[in-house]
């Protein structure tokens, strides 16, 4: 019971406070670490809630006595449900937390995956017939008076640029754009972005998930910018951004996206120093801790009992 409360408290604190720590200015200096931190914090909260539910279902004393005892404890729990109203409430809460979280997430995830795959399939087919492949660019070219470049991830991944973009960009700028898009594909950035979108959709209103979605979308752009800057040149990446953005219809622009675009350009022109070793190490430690911490907390009674030598894990005598 104490374990469950502890796990839920951890989840609640993380869900509300983690966005503050992660949203700070350091994220742009080490986008890869920041991305890992957002994903780990989100996973940590999910794991905590699910484990909290599980610990309510299985009394901690039973876990320490091995598998047979768990099955026994299971029977006892069911029997106990009919005796004490307090126990029933704990079991119901446990089922609601564990099954509720997993089912909700699974339901939304499956729907998202289906929709994405269908849409991706359609666009791949459209690219195959509606755009011409340009082997010298390693990209498909689409006839359009709207300057744009995008990539479509998936097994048949492709980068598409429009003829208007080809006309507008210099050779170096075009190389920067293509390197940026290829970095998205190579880094499988769509997986991280897809995961946080699913989380936000499954559990709306949780600050960690809402801000996490926006931040991850921003961070993968920074990562792709950095990759392009390494391959081509940071000034050319910035230049390509300004060239393409400058040609777009202002009405289509969202205020939030405008700020993000200007930030990317200034960041490329004046890159901040990467985080120091100490800061990177402590952030890396935090990333590991937010996921392993809840697991350790939940399995502590088991580990404690094994260490004390009072009981054997099932199968431990085979070794």
């Amino acid at each position: 019971m104490t374990t469950a409360v502890g796990l839920l408290a951890f989840a609640a604190v993380m869900a509300v406070l983690a966005p503050r720590a992660l949203g700070a200015g350091w994220s742009a200096r080490s986008p890869r670490l920041a991305l890992a931190a957002w994903l780990a914090a989100s996973a940590g909260v999910l794991v905590s809630v699910v484990l909290a539910g599980l610990t309510l279902l299985v009394p901690a004393t039973a876990v320490s006595q091995g598998l047979a005892a768990i099955l026994d404890a299971c029977a006892m729990t069911i029997a106990g449900v009919y005796r004490s109203p307090g126990q029933l409430a704990a079991v119901l809460t446990g089922v609601a937390l564990t099954a509720g979280t997993l089912l909700r997430l699974g339901w939304v995830a499956v729907g998202d995956m289906r929709r994405t795959r269908r849409e991706r399939h359609r666009l791949h087919a459209a690219i195959a017939t509606g755009a011409r492949t340009e082997p010298s660019l390693g990209a498909a070219v689409l006839d359009s008076d709207r300057p744009a470049a995008f990539c479509l991830p998936g097994r048949r991944r492709s980068v598409v640029v429009t003829t208007a973009a080809l006309d507008a960009l210099t050779g170096d700028e075009l190389a920067a754009v293509l390197a940026h898009e290829r970095a998205h594909l190579r880094g499988r950035h769509h997986l991280a972005a897809g995961a946080v979108r699913t989380l936000e959709r499954a559990f709306p209103g949780v600050p960690l998930f809402t801000q996490g979605r926006a931040e991850v979308e921003r961070l993968v752009e920074l990562l792709a910018d950095d990759a392009a800057a390494r391959r081509v040149d940071r000034v050319e990446v910035a230049s390509a951004l300004v060239t393409l953005a400058g040609m777009r219809a202002p009405a289509a622009a969202l205020p939030a996206a405008q700020g993000a675009g200007a930030f990317r350009v200034t960041r490329l022109l004046r890159p901040g120093a990467p985080l120091g070793l100490l800061a990177r190490l402590s952030a890396g430690f935090a990333v590991v801790a937010v996921v392993t911490g809840p697991v350790a907390l939940a399995t502590w009674p088991l580990a404690d009992a094994v260490a004390s030598g009072l009981c054997l894990l099932p199968g431990a005598d085979w070794v």
Partner: peptide, 22 residues
């Protein structure tokens, strides 16, 4: 959600100043 665009939007006023910075 399916594809990733290169371009980020900039408001028209900042385009000119960012261009000169570039």
């Amino acid at each position: 959600e399916v594809l990733m665009h290169f371009v980020a939007d900039l408001d028209p006023e900042s385009v000119a100043s960012l261009r000169s910075a570039v």
